[in-house]
């Protein structure tokens, strides 16, 4: 039984942080990367072997379409590049709105606190796809501002659709971080005659900042991996383009695993270092405080 204790402790620690932040952790380890690569190589090899000789081989097809899947046609930013763009903007807006909402959740004013709590819970517990559908279908395709007509492209609507759940989750991250500080910090600040605002900005939030970075990065990874949902609404990102590319090659079944595993691989290659970095940051901060 003693052998199991360290594992149990580690599991418990992870469960505690997950409960605090209300989200699971992307606990990516180096062996995950090795497995990914092995599966990819094996599948590609199998598909290659099965393919009819007279047609273009799956690997050649993939190489041919790779630029298209990664950024679309020459001079455009579609495909995987659009996934990244959506994730950047959704994270930016989601963070700004989420921090504001999170601070409102710890307000002393009851209506502000209850209202922001409701908004947070509403968007946190709605399925991302439902939010995305709602925004993409409700939002006008152009906005009139006086004489100006501003077009709103689909990917921008997707940004708003993704920013909402991110906002709600960042709001919880902020609230959780503030809550996680010992009450003694508030009390000693109070006994030193700091006002609530001074306490919050000079004592509480600077300490929370460090604690918020790892879950914030974690949410970014989750968001980045969720952006392909936009393909359902016809946004021209990597999954849409992969489907188009396979379509152009005659929808041959042996292309399917190769193309989709390639997609999986790009997302993995992108999120893996970020997830590792967040784990490292977290370890560093835990020792400090």
């Amino acid at each position: 039984m003693d052998v199991l204790l360290p594992i149990a402790r580690q599991q418990k620690a992870q469960a505690m942080t997950e409960r605090l932040e209300g989200t699971f952790r992307l606990n990516l380890q180096p062996h995950h990367a090795i497995w990914m690569l092995l599966i990819f190589v094996f599948t590609v090899g199998a598909a290659q072997a099965q393919a009819p000789r007279e047609l273009i081989s799956p690997i050649d097809a993939l190489v041919k379409w790779m630029p298209f899947i990664l950024w679309g046609q020459e001079g455009t930013l579609n495909g995987f590049a659009l996934n990244l763009m959506i994730s950047f903007f959704a994270m930016l807006f989601g963070t700004i709105a989420g921090v504001t909402l999170g601070l409102m959740q710890i307000s002393l004013l009851l209506p502000v606190r209850k209202g922001s709590w409701f908004v947070t819970q509403f968007f946190r517990n709605s399925p991302w796809l439902v939010l995305l559908f709602t925004i993409m279908l409700l939002f006008p395709f152009e906005i009139e501002l006086g004489n100006m007509i501003i077009p709103v492209p689909d990917w921008m609507k997707a940004v708003i659709g993704f920013a909402l759940p991110v906002m709600a989750n960042i709001s919880e991250v902020v609230r959780g971080a503030v809550r996680s500080l010992p009450t003694g910090q508030w009390e000693s600040a109070e006994s030193l005659a700091f006002s609530r605002r001074q306490t919050l900005w000079m004592i509480i939030l600077p300490q929370c900042f460090k604690r918020m970075i790892p879950p914030w990065i974690n949410w970014y990874c989750i968001l980045a991996m969720a952006t392909p949902l936009a393909s359902i609404m016809g946004v021209e990102e990597s999954v849409s383009y992969t489907a188009q590319a396979m379509n152009a090659e005659g929808d041959r079944p042996e292309l399917l695993p190769v193309f989709y595993l390639f997609l999986l691989l790009i997302f993995f290659v992108y999120t893996y270092p970020i997830a590792r970095w967040s784990i490292r940051l977290e370890k560093k901060f835990v020792v400090k405080t």
């Binding site: 010992p182 003694g184 910090q185 009390e187 000693s188 600040a189 006994s191 004592i203 300490q207 405080t289």
Partner: peptide, 10 residues
């Protein structure tokens, strides 16, 4: 006031 848990700002 001084507290049992010090409560310094870390």
């Amino acid at each position: 006031m001084v507290f049992q848990q010090y409560n310094l700002f870390p």
